[in-house]
């Protein structure tokens, strides 16, 4: 009975884990005070390059994963150079524009992406592998948050001017955040490709952009664990609503999201609330 339940929902768990990659990619820049949707573009870049590598050389998707991460990181570095000059609001709009452009580029580069036909990627990614990868990623974020970098980016997010006066160069730290975001996003793109076993221009589009930002904010954008929790909740929400309220599942999804944000505006996991409780 339990085995059946697990079999039924294991792919949902798999998608939730992949969504954690996307959420952490978004969190990486958000923790440095930048709202960016560009993680979708890193995912597309990493996903298509990784898929081509696997298809052309027959290597294991695990070996392609670092290549996808590097590809994502390089794109993110270029994006940081171009976009970080912009004011916060413009940065958000610009990254949204980048997502729209990504789809056009994917459609018009059929040798890399398969164009409208998409790419079939018959690989098998076990849930155990995915779990190990996810634990590694969480360990990295845990170590980062306690490092000098982690403290510095939090300062940049709270007040860039103060951070700068303390010798924390905002632009440089944000560029590092972008590169981290790109690497995680690129790897996430490859993992999504392996989960779906078929990718097309519609795979990496606006839906993922809004899903990942919603997951981060829902989970709590002030701690990396918030992104993890948010991705799991956000993936589980439609599955639960389908089982409970199949007729109006989309409306119920929206209402649940709205309710969480109105009653828990800082998200499910809020380090400030913990500190306050400890202080008491």
């Amino acid at each position: 009975m339990l085995a059946d339940l697990w079999a039924a929902y294991q792919s949902s768990v798999g998608f939730a884990m992949v969504n954690v990659f996307f959420a952490l990619s978004t969190y990486a820049v958000l923790s440095a005070g930048v709202l960016s949707f560009a993680s979708v573009s890193y995912a597309a870049f990493g996903g298509f390059i990784g898929a081509q590598l696997v298809l052309n050389t027959g290597i294991s998707p695990l070996l392609a994963l670092p290549v996808s991460a590097v590809a994502g990181a390089l794109l993110a570095y270029a994006v940081a150079l171009l976009f970080l000059r912009l004011d916060g609001h413009w940065m958000a709009l610009a990254s949204l524009a980048l997502v729209l452009m990504t789809r056009v580029v994917v459609l018009n580069a059929p040798t890399l992406t398969g164009g409208v036909n998409g790419l079939s990627l018959p690989v098998d990614l076990s849930l155990a592998t995915l779990t190990v990868l996810l634990l590694l990623l969480m360990l990295v974020f845990h170590r980062l948050s306690g490092s000098w970098y982690g403290i510095a980016v939090r300062a940049v997010r709270e007040d860039p001017a103060v951070a700068a006066s303390l010798g924390m160069p905002a632009r440089r730290l944000q560029t590092i955040a972008f590169v981290i975001s790109g690497a995680v996003g690129g790897a996430g793109g490859m993992l999504l490709a392996a989960m779906l076993q078929f990718i097309s221009p519609d795979t990496y589009f606006i839906n993922i952009a809004f899903t990942m930002i919603a997951a981060v904010v829902l989970g709590g954008s002030y701690h990396w664990a918030g992104a993890v929790a948010g991705a799991f909740v956000f993936t589980a929400l439609p599955v639960v609503m389908q089982a409970v309220l199949p007729q109006i599942q989309d409306v119920a999804n929206g209402a649940a999201l709205l309710a969480i944000m109105v009653f828990l505006p800082r998200g499910l996991i809020d380090p400030r609330a913990w500190r306050l409780r400890h202080a008491r």
């Binding site: 709202l35 809004f210 919603a214 829902l218 954008s221 409306v251 999804n253 929206g254 999201l257 709205l258």
Partner: peptide
Amino acid sequence: GMLGALITSIAFWIM
């Protein structure tokens, strides 16, 4: 404010 409102607007968009 902007982040929270973005998410609640996504919620309304879906609904």
